[in-house]
Write a protein that binds this DNA or RNA. Sequence first.
DNA 1: TATGAATGAGTTTTCATTCAT
DNA 2: GATGAATGAAAACTCATTCAT
Lengths: 189, 189, 189, 189
Amino acid sequence: MLAAAVELFASRGFDATSIRDIATAARVQPASVYYHYPSKEALLVAIVDRAAAQVADQIKAAAQSDDPWHRLEQACVAHLTALLQGERALRVLATEIPSRRTGAVHQALVRTRDAYEDMFRDLVAALPVGPAVDRSYLRLTLLGAINWTLIWYHPGGDAPATIARQIVTLIRQGAEGKPDAPDARPVSG
Amino acid sequence: MLAAAVELFASRGFDATSIRDIATAARVQPASVYYHYPSKEALLVAIVDRAAAQVADQIKAAAQSDDPWHRLEQACVAHLTALLQGERALRVLATEIPSRRTGAVHQALVRTRDAYEDMFRDLVAALPVGPAVDRSYLRLTLLGAINWTLIWYHPGGDAPATIARQIVTLIRQGAEGKPDAPDARPVSG
Amino acid sequence: MLAAAVELFASRGFDATSIRDIATAARVQPASVYYHYPSKEALLVAIVDRAAAQVADQIKAAAQSDDPWHRLEQACVAHLTALLQGERALRVLATEIPSRRTGAVHQALVRTRDAYEDMFRDLVAALPVGPAVDRSYLRLTLLGAINWTLIWYHPGGDAPATIARQIVTLIRQGAEGKPDAPDARPVSG
Amino acid sequence: MLAAAVELFASRGFDATSIRDIATAARVQPASVYYHYPSKEALLVAIVDRAAAQVADQIKAAAQSDDPWHRLEQACVAHLTALLQGERALRVLATEIPSRRTGAVHQALVRTRDAYEDMFRDLVAALPVGPAVDRSYLRLTLLGAINWTLIWYHPGGDAPATIARQIVTLIRQGAEGKPDAPDARPVSG
DNA sequence: TATGAATGAGTTTTCATTCAT
DNA sequence: GATGAATGAAAACTCATTCAT
């Protein structure tokens, strides 16, 4: 039943999914949903919290390199792969973050977003960056670029891992390129 | 009445705003809304189309520099200023773009997003970039970073113009910094 | 404008036609309809009354034969021709008669139906019929058969005049035929 | 609840009956209606289909005579009795047939009307009729006369069975009467 | 004559939720 | 654990009608 909810929330969005839809997909009656979850929002919170834990675990498991830039790249690769190809719950989480919620859902989303931010804050803090670089903007630009992939990604194109590496490399080296490092681009191999 | 709708769509979102809300805010009866717009979606389309024209005009008016990077920066400054401080309709446009719509609204949103994309495609095409840089990722990273500001921006912090310049500079020069780049970064000064 | 209303009432029915529909078809604004007619029902009454007068005139003009059966046939031919091919207002009248109305419309429809009935009552009263024949049932059967044509008539089939003659002949002679008059059927020549 | 709907549709007509009316009559909330039937039209279809089955069953059960004319009379007696005195659902069916509907309702009504027509087509086909008699007109005249009773029948008058016999006899023998037909007409006795 | 704008009462329908069984 | 039935609140939308201009 949770799986049905995840799938529907991921494909149609929370608002556009009714309890009836979920019940139908799970082949139970709408009333049965309420035996397991006290409300529709609680169902979303359960999904979101679960996805949040996954984000943390997967990213922490992936980001093990000693090189800070490489570690960030590993994290982004893991995250984008999960977001675009893996568990649909992650997609629910990411798409509901921009929505304006209240109450328990809001708290759960904020909690999750904070976990996100903290993780990236740490990863960014470890980076050796130029003296004039504001790490906040670096983090926010990276998060924006990554989350925006949900809008334009389609299965036929580049793999999520490729996309992640491209974004990290761009933000690391800049679009102008470095005259003294013409072939520094293929970072991880 | 359109103003009331813009304000409500901008602050609560389209789905969370009822015709009653709009009518109440405009101090008319719900039925009166339908004299001017045949449906709630048509109202959104009207707002979105209007906002789209504004985006185009304001950005084209602003981006006049001969230097491609400066021109991109001018465009981003103009856009972010309008988005975060100016006309609320632009915020409606930006927040409804990720939503899953159908029919006329979908078409209007796609049309608008395409105009967006084309504008940035042109601006990015004119940039002198390193040989290994993929302009598509450059454009998408920039758009992602810019649109993400809607999530984290709050009036007390840096001005939209500052944010725009930071993002463009970061993407231009990269986070590692360029030892030989003298004064291209007007960040903390 | 009346013409537009007639056409719409005839093709969609009174209930399914809105003032807006009529106004659009007449290329005026809905409010303009109310300059000419105080209400939608008044518009229907105007149409129905007009159609009623036409029924009477056309039928009386047509039914001039000295032979009572021939006179009835002439009346039915005139009526069915007008109903199925001629003025659309007659169709409005006929289709709205079975509907359940109240107030002015009800009265107008009753008035019209009575005129109908009286006319046929007179025509039937003049017929030489068998001793056991109830003239009421004769009249009601005839009216039923005639009005029912609206349900099944379609332009490609027999002409209204043919239909009228067939019905009258059937009711006159019966389906069993008369053993002593095998070729009496083509009544009017 | 179905009973309430039948009664209201029968007395006021489908269009003039709102879901609220039905809910009130059934002493439930309007939303409760939608638990049992997905739409107002579906409710009508349910009623109409049920009535259609009744028509068929009752008429087939009644029309068992070996004599074709007697069989037709039995069928008409059964039908008119049900229509004018019995189950109100039959009245709903008969009164909605002339209305212009679309979609599922239209199909259900057409299906029903076809069943009607087929039944009478068979009954009429078995009749021994005069050589010049068109059986189509015979059938349509009969159906018209029968359905028209809904317009003029009122409980105080002749019984439905009497009406049915009168109509069939009239159509069988014609109004002119047959001097040699001994006792086939049980009208006034 | 005509209309632009508005409106009050109404429509069908949806939905999250409840509760006795 | 599950559900059949119900419900209160709200949704978008329609419509005949009004009225100042």
